[in-house]
Design a binder for these strands. Structure first.
Lengths: 362, 362
DNA sequence: CTGAAAGCGCTAACAG
DNA sequence: CTGTTAGCGCTTTCAG
């Protein structure tokens, strides 16, 4: 595992070699590298030497000196659910834009442990966690040690760190209200027991709105799953559709489930939206595909990413204020899985933006 | 950007602090850290001190000393096409298993530049590139400098480095043969001009087999796209289906296109597979979904990942042999988008494994 | 502005 | 087995 290590840097060309070659001190080389003032003449000589020797400064040495690695850790749940690549993408973009590299952890059981180790061992300057739960004990320790950590998407009440999420409670309430106002009578749900705040809050908001309108969720029309995948959505919906009195509307707590549900309906020749309305959550790309044409709730991912990265960078720069808490509002995106209106093209999705202003708690 | 930097490591607890606390030399602390022989008694004292002070060894210092960062770079194209998250996932798993961290680059224009910089600057010990083309000049330089780089999935002939791919030519030939043998008469294709070897080889193999059977591809039934997405697949297929004499079979050079094509057929009420057969390539997860039920070609991703990581690790350990070249064979996965057989459930997909042995060129 | 010198936190000889 | 001693390659005082 550790025999002769090839010095990946050009046969080990070092700043000292450049200095010799350019006839200056090693410190001067460092200065041109870091952009500190150096007489133009010398600067040119140094640059020439760098080019000739194909020199690249050694990043680890720099990291050690400056105690900044330029890496930011990103912890995401396994990428099967397309929401997570999407999140990864926007976060990665924002991080890269800020001049950092992205190191990703994405094992099945979201291993925050490795990430926590990495911050603590200063292998990354900070971490963005998109899947925190109360079970993320290692990361929690790191947070308490004031390591730069920000939570996105899934958040955990009480952690003393910055947290960015969308208002899942309000989003789900919006869905419930929409279904009620549209005259749906037998409203069902595919949810589940989850540690993820996003999932929990969606169920909470949905139930709460229904109840507050005197139409509390009929538990017989409610399926709880353990995993939130296409398959489980398919199966759960299948069970509901096989009931003597199936639901006429189904809220799935994420799109992945909803796509499965939509296919279960297709499989059983249930007319959507004629006999069954389906609403998902997340607005992943497939939701807009012709085969699904799914009404759903869209989270402002880019905005979330921007906030998260900004907060993290501030922490990395030494900001020590209290944990900030941001809830951004969601949009309901109406598509063919709910209205009776004929959908003519996949490309026209009617986005019904609720006038929720950006809500910043605290 | 660089004010007071919080020492993310516990108020800067260092191995020297541990040494003092445990009453041993700093070197001994290092020894227990690295698992070198130390008398049990001292070892215990050190471990106790580590726990009490919540010490974590500084990774960058270690990296600098050992000139091994423990990071491996992964360059993947943008994650919209679900193949790439899948690849990322298997590669990430293999890398993690080997005890390395994964740093990911995934900007829109696959920026090999940043990755190349990182290897050269020894911020990562090596890189795995899944999207190399002849245009990846920066990375090519790094390869010539003998930096540990391996190419997976998309490969580039002539680069002096290890390359792992599946045999896309043979896979596409298999598709052509299958369509011919099944009596399809008007065979079309959705392909495109691409630098990606995988795409080019699929088109080549498909055309070649058709021609060799005296049924050269009818160019009027061939659409070339510039991007390989659901949308472009939808549009290209739509054009073909709107022809006076539309194809009765369509090979799409990747699944993403094929899913779009399938939806175009749905949109125009083309019976699949009654009036139109569709075949994709990659076997991404959605291919098996009920709405699509797509016949496709499956690449042995896990195997590819294993080879890639093994090769890379060998390079990192100093192996300097010639660039190895591996082509693994693909499977044709038959589903409802081609046979006339009624598909009863999404879960039963008939996998027709061609008895291609693993082919190792060179 | 530039050079000399110190040292980041760790590992790895080198002597005991 | 253990302590002492050198640095890894860079950035950053500190003098000049």
């Amino acid at each position: 595992m550790h025999e002769m290590n090839t010095n990946s840097n050009q046969k080990g060309v070092t700043s000292r070699d450049i200095a010799r070659r350019a006839g200056v001190s090693q410190a001067t080389v460092s200065r041109v590298l870091t952009g500190n003032p150096v007489r133009q003449e010398l600067r040119d000589k140094v640059k020439a030497a760098i080019r000739e020797l194909k020199y690249r400064p050694n990043g680890t040495a720099r990291a050690m000196r400056t105690s900044r690695t330029g890496n930011i850790g990103l912890v995401v749940p396994r990428l099967a659910n397309p929401l997570h690549p999407a999140l990864l993408h926007v976060l990665g973009g924002a991080v890269t834009q800020a001049g950092f590299r992205v190191v990703v952890w994405s094992t099945d059981d979201v291993d925050e442990k490795a990430a926590a180790d990495a911050v603590r061992g200063s292998l990354v300057d900070g971490v963005i966690m998109t899947a925190a739960t109360t079970a993320s004990t290692q990361l929690y320790e790191a947070v308490q040690l004031k390591a730069p950590v920000v939570l996105v998407n899934r958040v955990v009440e009480g952690w003393p760190c910055d947290q960015v999420a969308s208002d899942n409670v309000a989003g789900a309430r919006m869905v419930a209200e929409y279904l009620l106002n549209s005259g749906r009578r037998r409203i069902g749900m595919v949810g589940g027991i989850s540690l993820a705040s996003s999932i929990r809050q969606r169920q909470f908001g949905f139930r709460e709105m229904l109840a507050s309108r005197g139409r509390a969720l009929d538990e017989r029309l409610c399926e709880l799953v353990e995993q939130f995948s296409y398959r489980t959505g398919f199966e759960a919906a299948a069970r509901l559709l096989d009931l003597a009195e199936p639901p006429d509307a189904l809220f799935c707590v994420n799109d992945f489930l909803a796509l499965g549900a939509r296919d279960a309906a297709r499989n059983r020749d249930f007319d959507v939206p004629g006999a069954l309305w389906i609403v998902g959550y997340d607005d992943i790309e497939m939701a807009s595909w012709h085969a699904f044409d799914l009404t759903t709730v869209r989270q402002p991912l880019s905005q979330m990413a921007e906030y998260a990265v900004r907060f993290l960078l501030e922490r990395i720069s030494g900001y020590e204020g209290e944990g900030r808490n941001i809830r951004l509002s969601n949009d309901l995106v109406l598509r063919g899985s709910t209205s009776r209106r004929q959908n003519t093209s996949t490309s026209t999705s009617n986005s019904c933006t609720e006038p929720h202003p950006i809500t910043e708690d605290k």
